[in-house]
């Protein structure tokens, strides 16, 4: 029963808690669905122990090479503007996060999801299912080939439209780093009226927007966007004993 002995001190990594001013808040009244769903009590700080600094080793067996290409599904080619979406997964210390699962999902070029509750009058694409998966490489890089998603309407407020976006899900290397987010495209004219976008504190909004990447476009083939994703870094609050006056 080695596992039930306390094992004394363990030298565990520590993860930084994100400044609340840079985090998307749970309650945001302009986004109506938060009303009955966002917890109202102040969350309790959970110390980072073994459960929080580990994570599932997922991946390779769930990801096939063709999962990185969303443009050829169900026996044909998707309609729309073909784009390469690529970038790096980093932690807050600037270190790449290698061999971690990246899951994406998105609407088709007309702004319609292949989902039973999406039935607004835009066409489905018989060759687009909107699902992609890749593992980052040993430098933390990821890359998908997809089509640019369309904007779509929803019922949050009168004439509400979601700016074009791709949903991303990441695990990082620890439970504390788990992130689900959305990638936007530069200069979208719909940002101003979208509460899912405006719920992001202003200082953090640029981090949710990809960059048009002319260098990575492919002649007669695809445009390209670059988006780096930053997961939580280590907690570098210095120990008192390290305070030797060197503050450079």
């Amino acid at each position: 029963m080695t596992g039930t002995t306390s094992g004394g001190r363990l030298d565990l990594p520590r993860y930084a808690r994100t400044d609340a001013a840079l985090r998307t808040p749970l309650s945001y009244s302009d986004y109506r669905s938060t009303g009955l769903r966002a917890p109202l009590r102040t969350p309790v700080d959970l110390p980072h122990r073994l459960t929080e600094v580990t994570r599932p080793l997922l991946g390779e067996d769930r990801v096939r090479p063709e999962d990185a290409d969303l443009t050829r599904r169900l026996g044909g080619e998707a309609v729309g503007q073909r784009i390469i979406v690529h970038g790096r997964v980093l932690d807050g210390d600037g270190r790449p996060v290698p061999h971690t699962l990246v899951e994406v999902w998105q609407a088709n070029a007309a702004g319609r999801y292949r989902h039973v509750v999406d039935n607004w009058p835009a066409p489905l694409d018989p060759h687009f299912d909107g699902l992609g998966r890749v593992m980052t490489d040993d430098q933390g890089r990821y890359e998908f080939l997809t089509i640019r998603p369309g904007a779509y309407p929803w019922r949050n407020h009168d004439n509400a439209w979601r700016p074009a976006h791709i949903h991303f899900s990441l695990f990082g290397r620890a439970f504390t780093q788990r992130l689900v987010t959305q990638m936007y495209f530069p200069d979208d004219p719909l940002f101003f009226q979208d509460p899912i976008f405006t719920s992001i504190p202003e200082a953090a909004r640029p981090l949710a927007i990809s960059r048009f990447d002319y260098e990575r476009t492919v002649d007669h083939w695809a445009l390209a966007y670059e988006w780096d994703i930053v997961l939580r870094g280590s907690d570098q609050t210095p120990f008192e004993t390290e305070d030797d006056g060197d503050v450079a």
Binding site: D91, E103, W105, G130, H167, T181, L207
Partner: peptide, 23 residues
């Protein structure tokens, strides 16, 4: 050491089943 600001989170939305369903 470089400190990078973390990417902000966003909701999974109503269509999470497309991307996050695992057999």
């Amino acid at each position: 050491m470089t400190r990078l600001q973390p990417t902000p989170s966003a909701t999974v939305g109503p269509y999470l089943a497309i991307g996050l369903t695992w057999e």
